[in-house]
């Protein structure tokens, strides 16, 4: 029943790997890479902000895959994975907005402005928080899984909008960077931290999916001592 039960230690290994890589990548980003020509040391926020953005969108994408798989197959392991991916995606999207604000203040001159990229990202964050809230209010597991899968598919439409927001509309946020617009000396810490957060995200999602599956098991077949408690109340 529990997902990924065949590799019980895999998520812990991923988390350990992620922490080591994040420390290494951040060390390179903070102390070894040169400061940017105009932004100086403040640009070092990029090494944590950009990997967070990539992985937040990746987590949402995995949630979409899980939502489709659940509606197609009706297997509750996909529901557990979806809940996990959304929660971790919300964590990363929240961090993304905070890091972005901290970077924006010294460079743009403001903490926040309702430009298309920032607005669509905030919409994404609140849409997925809404789905997590929805799951808390629905008691029937089948309805909970079905409705939140439907909501996830609809909310996911915002992900490509976030990505293209900077090209479709004029914005305060700059266009997507590419390896050609970023100096070579910045690539290594950026890539290391991207993989670091990918490993952390995967480890978190695996553990969170286990938790969701366990909760469902207990919901459907409460442990005996809790049944006794219910009996005493009745």
């Amino acid at each position: 029943m529990t997902p990924n039960h065949r590799f019980p230690r895999a998520p812990y290994a991923l988390l350990a790997l992620g922490v080591i890589l994040l420390l290494l990548g951040s060390y390179l980003g903070l102390f070894v890479a040169p400061p940017e020509h105009f932004m100086g040391d403040v640009q070092r926020i990029m090494y944590v902000h950009v990997p967070t953005a990539w992985n937040a969108l990746l987590a949402m994408t995995f949630a979409l895959v899980c939502a489709i798989a659940f509606l197609f197959r009706g297997d509750f392991r996909w529901d557990a994975r979806m809940e996990a991916a959304i929660e971790v995606g919300v964590l990363l999207a929240f961090l993304l907005c905070c890091q972005g604000a901290i970077w924006a203040k010294p460079t743009w001159g403001v903490w926040w402005d309702w430009d298309p990229r920032l607005t669509t990202t905030a919409v994404l964050l609140f849409a997925f928080i809404g789905i997590l809230a929805l799951r808390r209010f629905v008691d029937d597991p089948v309805r909970r899984a079905t409705w939140s899968a439907v909501a996830t598919i609809i909310a996911y439409a915002d992900v490509p909008i976030v990505y293209y927001s900077v090209t479709w509309w004029n914005s305060l946020h700059q266009l997507q960077s590419s390896p050609a617009t970023v100096s070579k000396s910045f690539h290594l810490p950026l890539r290391m931290n991207a993989f670091a957060i990918l490993f952390l995200m995967t480890g978190f999602i695996m553990l969170r999916a286990r938790l969701a599956s366990l909760r469902l098991e207990h919901e459907l077949a409460p442990p005996p001592h809790e049944l006794d408690a219910v009996g005493e109340l009745a």
Partner: peptide, 17 residues
């Protein structure tokens, strides 16, 4: 009353700069 700077998508080390 509010002046915001919009930088481009280029990040250059001082050497390239």
């Amino acid at each position: 009353e509010r002046l915001m700077v919009s930088h481009n998508n280029e990040y250059r080390s001082p050497k390239d700069g």
